[in-house]
Amino acid sequence: MQRVNMIMAESPGLITICLLGYLLSAECTVFLDHENANKILNRPKRYNSGKLEEFVQGNLERECMEEKCSFEEAREVFENTERTTEFWKQYVDGDQCESNPCLNGGSCKDDINSYECWCPFGFEGKNCELDVTCNIKNGRCEQFCKNSADNKVVCSCTEGYRLAENQKSCEPAVPFPCGRVSVSQTSKLTRAETVFPDVDYVNSTEAETILDNITQSTQSFNDFTRVVGGEDAKPGQFPWQVVLNGKVDAFCGGSIVNEKWIVTAAHCVETGVKITVVAGEHNIEETEHTEQKRNVIRIIPHHNYNAAINKYNHDIALLELDEPLVLNSYVTPICIADKEYTNIFLKFGSGYVSGWGRVFHKGRSALVLQYLRVPLVDRATCLRSTKFTIYNNMFCAGFHEGGRDSCQGDSGGPHVTEVEGTSFLTGIISWGEECAMKGKYGIYTKVSRYVNWIKEKTKLT
């Protein structure tokens, strides 16, 4: 034993070699072989497995989906700052455009905790909710729209109204504003409101030439003092309507412009014939205590009207009353817009006519005020429907199939267009061939041609 100890002390290297040989010859039971080890760690190889990531292109799944990435790591994937920024906006807080917040056709661009709407022409605001041009839906104005110097929408209202708090709607500024039905039992019968379409306001006024200088022999019209197929109006439903009495009662109609003036057809009036105007009328054979009678003290036909040349060209006249009318729910003026808007309103496509005229061709006159909704007829169809001249200051309205029309005794009465609950004068009943005849239409004086003249002559002093 002493000898062994001496050998170990003198030859430590020998001992180490012996131990190493023993270990190498022993069977290893701690580690699995290569094949079995792979069965336990069965993990798919990654895209760049075996390579240094710093030297390969980034992978979106590896960089940002398996674990949260930084902007720089995302930049490695896209290799483009702009594309990385677009991805980053949604990656950080989701897609803010998912709810489609942009209105009126706006395009949404996502941002971090926010979004941006790219608005089409005519709109602005956070969600493109603000109209900035009158060309689109009248700028959301209830009545009139004008573009300011910086191309912003400025709404306005006709006389007797003021802008509401929203700067879009119009509200009454006087007790009985024009064009409004205020009798409670008839307010439910107000005709369907007309909503502004998209309009090209630059070209809204037709490029028409008034044929002022045409000389033409007097034409022989049949029954051209021209509501057939209409309905009984309720008291106060058309408070701007008046009836004219002269040699015979209810020979023509008219509309209240203001307390002192009536507008009617020029062919209705004769110099030297006494005319009485009755406002607030409903049943011409009954006294309903809503009527107001006034005498006409002055007749002003349009300066281009000449019955000797043509009885229905420039067929418009103004009547001055001896005493002002007292405005109330049964006696209310009709609204008159400017030339541009009167023309736009007419193009809405349908209007209402009213009167006490004959209820059928050569038949009896109506006792109760009649009204009828009539569609506008395109000019080409209008011209083809008659052998008589249709001037540019006239328009056609009615039904091709016949059966409904204005008729004798309705002449001078109103053709009105309702705009968001307020009625505007767009025409004056003038003439036609018979009444409600198939293929024939009622012919009306186009008020847009005469609004400046009306307003100039009827100013209240």
Rank of each mutant, 00 (worst) to 15 (best):
Q2K: 07
N5V: 15
A9L: 13
E10A: 15
Y22Q: 09
E27D: 13
E27T: 10
T29F: 07
T29H: 12
F31C: 08
D33N: 07
K39C: 03
N42K: 09
K45Q: 13
Y47Q: 11
N48W: 10
S49V: 12
G50E: 12
K51W: 04
L52P: 15
L52I: 15
E53I: 08
F55A: 15
L60Q: 15
E61V: 06
M65F: 12
E66T: 06
S70H: 08
S70T: 13
E72N: 15
E72D: 15
R75S: 06
V77L: 11
R83L: 10
G94Y: 07
D95L: 06
C97E: 00
E98M: 09
N100Y: 08
G105R: 03
G105C: 01
D110F: 05
D111G: 08
Y115L: 01
Y115S: 02
F121C: 03
E124C: 02
K126G: 05
C128K: 01
E129A: 04
E129L: 02
C141L: 00
Q143H: 11
N147L: 14
V153Q: 08
V154M: 13
C155F: 01
G160S: 07
G160I: 01
Q167Y: 09
Q167F: 10
C170P: 01
P177M: 02
G179T: 01
V181W: 07
V181E: 07
T190M: 04
D198R: 11
V202N: 12
I210V: 14
D212V: 12
D212H: 09
Q216M: 12
Q216Y: 11
Q216D: 12
S220H: 06
D223P: 13
T225L: 11
T225N: 14
R226D: 10
G230F: 12
A233D: 05
K234W: 11
K234Y: 14
Q237Y: 11
P239E: 00
W240A: 00
L244H: 03
N245E: 06
K247S: 12
K247T: 12
G254M: 00
G254E: 00
S255H: 02
S255V: 11
W261P: 00
G272A: 08
K274D: 15
G280A: 03
G280S: 02
E281W: 11
E281H: 13
H282A: 08
N283D: 14
N283R: 12
N295H: 14
V296Q: 01
I300Y: 06
P301K: 12
H303Y: 14
N304D: 11
A307F: 08
N310S: 15
Y312G: 04
Y312P: 03
L319V: 06
D322N: 07
V326L: 10
L327Q: 03
N328V: 00
P333G: 03
C335P: 02
I336P: 00
D338F: 03
E340H: 15
N343I: 03
F345Q: 02
F348G: 13
G349L: 04
G349T: 04
S350R: 14
S350W: 15
S354R: 07
W356L: 09
V359W: 11
F360R: 14
H361K: 13
P375K: 14
K387I: 04
N393R: 03
F395Q: 01
A397Q: 02
E401L: 12
P414A: 09
T417D: 02
S423D: 03
E434V: 10
Y441T: 07
G442V: 13
I443V: 08
K455H: 12
K457Q: 08
T461Q: 13
